[in-house]
Design a protein around this nucleic acid. Structure first.
Lengths: 133, 133
DNA sequence: ACAAGTATGCACCTTTTGGTAAGTGATCCA
DNA sequence: TGGATCACTTACCAAAAGGTGCATACTTGT
């Protein structure tokens, strides 16, 4: 796995651990994804693009990403509010690092799909057997 | 972010999403990490290596990784139980895809560390101000 | 006889995460 | 005047994730 992982870091086990904690959160990768695709994006556009995300969640994750220096928030201080979000250089580099995962998921889509069907089936079986017995 | 992300997948938003759901779980990346480093590893060794993980969690995540086809479990059916775990080819390929994240975390360790200190400070401030007001 | 180690299972509980629904000022449109 | 849009905020809740600790069947070491 290369020795980029080996050093003993303060707080996290390895660089991988650190990274995963930064992007932890149901919508963060997706946000990074959309921001990496197009340039600066208005809040409402993100909101509509991601679909299924609630205001609360989207705002929350955007806040964290912003506080973490991965995303830059621009408030135009206009009368009907106007705000947009864009990746910082750091955010862009992270988005780059995500590409192989993205590729892996796509390349192994069959396996992954099977995996999730299996998980669902197991959960269903568990719920059927568990409460019954 | 390359177009490895673009296809409309059944269930998940993109390959990245799919991958992240596979490795979701506090200890899975670490397990993958340790298994990628050395070859087959006995349960007890993993347990001691990862430290801070509980039996319940480790077993649970190993089970999922095994069910997902990323890890192969070998039970030697011996009298004092002996079992070991190793990566499958699929698991190895995933471990490879994790390397850039690992590298990113290591390269941007300063930023990441700052980020987490900031988060901690914010949480502390929040707890101090919130209940008071 | 007794403690320890082996790989797990299980019950219970707390923390974290995510989701829903409502409300905020201000402006624009009919 | 009433409704919609903008970017949020807040209070409340449900579900999931994670943690602790005890139990198991068997053997080995003392």
């Amino acid at each position: 796995m290369s020795d980029a992982c080996t050093p003993t870091l303060p707080g996290f086990t390895c660089g991988l651990d650190a990274t995963l904690r930064v992007i932890a959160g149901k919508w963060k990768p997706l946000i990074l994804y959309f921001l990496a695709q197009g340039g600066p994006t208005r809040y409402g556009d993100l909101r509509r693009a991601i679909r299924d995300v609630s205001d609360k969640m989207l705002i929350q994750q955007l806040k964290e990403l912003t506080a973490d220096g991965l995303v830059r928030r621009t408030d135009y201080k206009e009368v009907p509010p106007r705000v947009d979000y864009a990746l910082t250089p750091l955010g862009e580099s992270l988005a780059q690092a995500l590409v192989p995962l993205c590729t892996w998921g796509t390349e192994n889509l069959q396996e992954v799909t099977r995996v999730f069907e299996q998980r669902a089936a197991d959960r269903a079986a568990g719920r059927a057997a568990g409460p019954a017995a």
